[in-house]
Amino acid sequence: MTEQRSGFPRRDAEGRILTLGDLLGIGLAGWVVGVLALALFDWAFALIGTAEFGRTNGWLAMILPAWLFWDDFRAWDFGAARVVGALLAAALGVVAGLVVAGLAGGLAPLFTGGLAALAFTLVYAVVWFPSVHWLARRTG
């Protein structure tokens, strides 16, 4: 695997992210940007009196991490490894997110959903990366 270009995240010639640290770093950065954008919009609507602060669904913070995960998914060759890895990671990520949302149920939706989106991002990355690499070695 040769690197495609320098920068962050580092990718191989096929466009796949090279390290779990890069995937986690970009995923978490995307989550932070998403939460900050949601908080800003929520605050603006609260300021003009159209809504109460904290009522925005925090799960929307998943948009940038999901885009990253989709991009890495597309970079892998078509086959069982990427599909099984993605389904496993998504299932465990959703379960983790729902558990966290349930535990943080007393908070405003912005914070509950934001924490759930964080759990999903972490679990998806930690499950997807090693599973797709392991399955790709086994099948291909």
Score class of each variant (00 low, 15 high):
residue 27 G to H: 06
residue 27 G to N: 06
residue 28 L to E: 02
residue 28 L to R: 03
residue 29 A to I: 13
residue 29 A to G: 11
residue 30 G to S: 05
residue 30 G to D: 01
residue 30 G to C: 03
residue 31 W to Y: 06
residue 31 W to F: 05
residue 31 W to C: 10
residue 31 W to K: 07
residue 31 W to S: 08
residue 31 W to I: 11
residue 32 V to G: 04
residue 33 V to D: 04
residue 33 V to R: 04
residue 33 V to T: 06
residue 34 G to Q: 07
residue 34 G to M: 00
residue 35 V to W: 11
residue 35 V to F: 14
residue 36 L to W: 08
residue 36 L to A: 14
residue 37 A to Y: 08
residue 37 A to D: 04
residue 38 L to I: 11
residue 38 L to V: 12
residue 38 L to C: 03
residue 38 L to T: 06
residue 39 A to W: 08
residue 40 L to G: 13
residue 40 L to V: 07
residue 41 F to E: 00
residue 41 F to I: 00
residue 41 F to D: 00
residue 42 D to S: 14
residue 42 D to P: 05
residue 42 D to F: 12
residue 43 W to A: 07
residue 44 A to Y: 11
residue 44 A to F: 15
residue 46 A to T: 03
residue 46 A to Y: 05
residue 46 A to R: 03
residue 47 L to I: 06
residue 48 I to D: 13
residue 48 I to Y: 11
residue 49 G to S: 03
residue 49 G to A: 02
residue 49 G to P: 11
residue 49 G to N: 07
residue 50 T to A: 11
residue 51 A to W: 04
residue 52 E to V: 05
residue 52 E to P: 00
residue 53 F to A: 13
residue 53 F to N: 09
residue 53 F to K: 12
residue 53 F to V: 08
residue 54 G to K: 10
residue 54 G to Q: 09
residue 55 R to K: 13
residue 55 R to G: 05
residue 55 R to W: 08
residue 56 T to A: 05
residue 56 T to M: 06
residue 56 T to I: 15
residue 56 T to Y: 12
residue 57 N to Q: 07
residue 58 G to P: 00
residue 58 G to D: 03
residue 59 W to E: 01
residue 59 W to I: 04
residue 59 W to H: 04
residue 60 L to H: 13
residue 61 A to I: 04
residue 61 A to G: 11
residue 61 A to F: 01
residue 62 M to R: 03
residue 63 I to L: 14
residue 64 L to A: 06
residue 64 L to W: 02
residue 65 P to N: 04
residue 65 P to V: 10
residue 66 A to T: 15
residue 66 A to P: 02
residue 68 L to Y: 02
residue 68 L to A: 08
residue 68 L to T: 11
residue 68 L to D: 05
residue 68 L to P: 13
residue 68 L to S: 08
residue 70 W to R: 07
residue 70 W to Q: 12
residue 71 D to S: 14
residue 71 D to F: 01
residue 71 D to L: 13
residue 73 F to M: 05
residue 73 F to T: 06
residue 73 F to I: 02
residue 74 R to Q: 15
residue 74 R to S: 12
residue 74 R to N: 10
residue 75 A to N: 08
residue 75 A to C: 07
residue 76 W to Y: 15
residue 76 W to D: 02
residue 76 W to C: 01
residue 77 D to Y: 14
residue 78 F to G: 14
residue 78 F to N: 10
residue 78 F to Q: 09
residue 78 F to A: 11
residue 80 A to P: 13
residue 81 A to N: 09
residue 82 R to F: 13
residue 82 R to E: 14
